[in-house]
């Protein structure tokens, strides 16, 4: 059964200085889907994502990613995750290309299509510029390029369309759909605005004050509407 799941968290708890920020978080993300993680500022989206990647350690609960236990199979899991957490950071004095090369070396990948990936995110021809010259939107795109270039099975994107113009947002949405369809990726994407993710998400998980209130499958809602 867990074979079909990209992410499964069971009763996840995280406290900061005695304050319970995440309370019994149960999240289920199916492989090959786009999961929209919706919550107001401070609801706990970033905190949950950080626990999935291992940047924060949960006080209680269990995490399974791609059918593997988060604690036991740390490196195997990390090889298969691409992520943006908050604002993506780069080595400013290096070019976009060099930043991606460094990332690939850390991921243990020898050759990859850097130009192709830059083109996918709409950064064709900017690979040689130092990142310090990049605009906010270009950084966001480069962050997405870095998250997908090692061809991970799971993408964890924390508010990835911050700073993009409407055209950029549409391009990235199309890219996300294409990644799921043609590259077998599963995408976990957070936002505090429903309209940002409802068009592309298969499932929406709503987090309020550190608790997932509901996980709604949009396809099932659509089916219902069609039947009525």
């Amino acid at each position: 059964m867990t074979n079909g799941l990209a992410v499964k968290t069971i009763d996840l708890v995280k406290t900061f200085d005695g304050k319970e920020v995440i309370k019994n978080c149960n999240m289920t993300v199916h492989k090959g889907s786009i999961y929209g993680f919706l919550g107001a500022n401070g609801a706990g989206k970033t905190t949950v994502f950080k626990m999935l990647i291992g940047l924060l350690i949960p006080n209680a609960g269990n995490i399974e990613i791609l059918g593997l236990n988060r604690v036991d199979k740390e490196n195997e899991i990390l090889k298969n995750i691409g992520s943006i957490i908050e604002t993506p950071m780069f080595y400013e004095h290096l070019s976009a290309r060099e930043n991606l090369e460094i990332h690939l070396s850390y991921m243990g990948i020898l050759n990859s299509n850097i130009e192709g990936t830059l083109e996918m995110v709409g950064l064709k021809g900017t690979g040689k510029q130092p990142v310090s010259k990049f605009s906010l939107g270009m950084r966001q795109r480069l962050g997405i390029a870095r998250a997908i270039i090692h061809n991970p099975q799971l993408l964890i994107l924390d508010e990835p369309i911050n700073g993009l113009d409407p055209v950029g947002i549409r391009q990235m949405r199309e890219l996300f759909l294409e990644l799921v369809k043609n590259h077998d990726m599963t995408i976990l994407i957070s936002s505090h605005i429903l309209s940002e993710i409802e068009h592309i998400a298969d499932t929406i998980g709503v987090i309020v004050d550190g608790q997932i209130l509901e996980e709604v499958s949009l396809s099932s809602i659509k089916d219902k509407f069609l039947m009525d």
Partner: peptide, 11 residues
């Protein structure tokens, strides 16, 4: 913030 990335590598 760069440490977020550094710590998400399988090393």
């Amino acid at each position: 913030d760069r440490v977020l990335l550094l710590f998400s590598y399988p090393i």
